[in-house]
Design a protein around this nucleic acid. Sequence first.
DNA 1: TCAAAAGTGTTCGACATACACCCATGT
DNA 2: ACATGGGTGTATGTCGAACACTTTTGA
Lengths: 220, 220
Amino acid sequence: MQTHFTIDCVILAFDEGQVKVLLAERNEYPYKDWWALPGYFVNKYEEMEDAVARILLEMTGLKDIYMDQLAAFAGVKRHPEGRILTVAYMALVQMDEVRNKIATGTNYMRQLKWFPVDELPDLAFDHKEILQLGLDRLKKSVSYSATPYELLPAKFTLTQLQQVYEALLNKKLDKRNFRKKINNLGYLKELNEFQKGVSYRAAKLYSFDKKKFMKMFSQD
Amino acid sequence: MQTHFTIDCVILAFDEGQVKVLLAERNEYPYKDWWALPGYFVNKYEEMEDAVARILLEMTGLKDIYMDQLAAFAGVKRHPEGRILTVAYMALVQMDEVRNKIATGTNYMRQLKWFPVDELPDLAFDHKEILQLGLDRLKKSVSYSATPYELLPAKFTLTQLQQVYEALLNKKLDKRNFRKKINNLGYLKELNEFQKGVSYRAAKLYSFDKKKFMKMFSQD
DNA sequence: TCAAAAGTGTTCGACATACACCCATGT
DNA sequence: ACATGGGTGTATGTCGAACACTTTTGA
């Protein structure tokens, strides 16, 4: 009637034109030496939101990241020692902001590493299933949402934005149609700045106007 | 590090032009005499899917109903005796099919009753929050989905279908536009049968062609 | 001058919206 | 005959899809 209770984190970022997930190499049985989603046990008197923040920090070094609940997984057989109920959370982060903050290792895991979601190693427990659920949900949340902007730096080019859409939706988009649509959204700010350090024509930078976005979608 | 673990069920149906939820009047402390979502504890070696089916049957008398996971709730303070993690599940049912199958009472609850979702009593624990999450998710799932048909009997009139959409979306729709759109969907079968027992022109009955629907939306 | 990516318009079909009247039936 | 809901068409605007060339820049 009682059960162990853990939280697992699906941390996704966009880098080199691909969606990547942060995985930990386990240093503990069971599944020692396997790759797994960062996660750990919840304490007895801990609120779930607090536990998510604590575990995220302890396991990855990241903090102040908004995590969305994905689902609960509770298969009796998912852990050799008996049922461990896990609640999976998901976050989208900007690679540039977190790249240098990622922890290097703890007692429980040897290292953390970003894997493109279409080049995954075998994962411990039912973590592949959990990740897949997260990716499916992500795909559904893309259109007319702030989702893509969570994966980009504050200033970005339209081509970068298009790449995020293409990676999330897993299909190519037409450049002209994409830009037309994006322009009509009304919550993109065109900056008077340009890309730097490229050996071709520098693209104009844009930013996401969160206030306008909120205003446009707050009534329902 | 261990916690109690329950399942709560959000059972929704459509009746008299309204979305209704099935609630149980508790006969146990805490929250004795309050209305609550039907739910109970999961057994130690029980798969979550099995537990959902068992609890649904024991608490409501219903079986063979597909339940979707909504979310996990685990506030330390949600239960006076300490943290009880609950996983909420949601199902849509057809009122005519279930009306006579609903249990009349158990040791744990005195009676079950359908409440229109906009005329709710106070609810035990955080059940209002759980229900609200279910309704929000339902609203999002309406367009181009099979959701509305799960709430209707096998044969229904277009006006009934429109009422379901209106109740779920919480706004009025234009009759002509609605019918045009519905006709273009391609997965509604027009039957050669008519409504009976009404004191005005009898409406034609339709049915939902699940096979066609599946075929149209299976590729992605 | 070349390579690489930035940037830009038009046409077409599909779909959402707005809107008002006659029809069939039971009492 | 009347009350009640059933059933129908047109015009307009918006949006997504298809499609190819010129411009800018650094090396």
